[in-house]
Amino acid sequence: MKAFGGKILFLNRSDINTDEIIPAKYLTDISKEVLQPYLFEDLKIEGFNPKTDLRNVGVVVTRANFGCGSSREHAPWALEANGIHLVIAQSFARIFRQNMFNCGMMAVELPASTIDHLFDAYSASGASLQTDWENRCFLIQSKAGIEKIAFTVSKYDRSLVEAGGWVEYADANY
């Protein structure tokens, strides 16, 4: 199972699409690792600089409909190549969300009010997050201390994460 934690990158916008996560011109590579320098290259959010702001990041927290657009699994791969295995959002586009779990990674939805709270409390000062898998909660560490945020993940999605992805799961089951 992959590790789900690290420094949080806050992306304060809804509808961040797959072209913004990884532009199509990089889809001609057949290796996942080469995507690493291009994550969020075309994402324009005030105050965000993909060249400097991705260092040591392990978790992305963002708004609604993250990952809309193309089916490219290069989007989760580009995140993975940067050590990001967990995206937390108000909602996800279907294919992106499925791709994350299919790769043994996590796309976790939290209510809008919780997302608002995370932005309000931590986006300015910075925080890191650890996942307590047993108790289904995120531990958010900041100067103010540690806050617990409960999350849910379906039994099926959990089994994908535990299996390491859909290929392993399907191979064992079908």
């Binding site: 699994e73 299919n102 290929v167 079908y174």
Partner: peptide, 20 residues
């Protein structure tokens, strides 16, 4: 339905796919 590469890979190998 459009899917990612992993779903495609399992589709090619097993002829199945999972959906909500």
């Amino acid at each position: 339905a459009g899917v990612g590469t992993t779903d495609l890979e399992v589709g090619i190998l097993k002829g199945v796919c999972a959906f909500h």
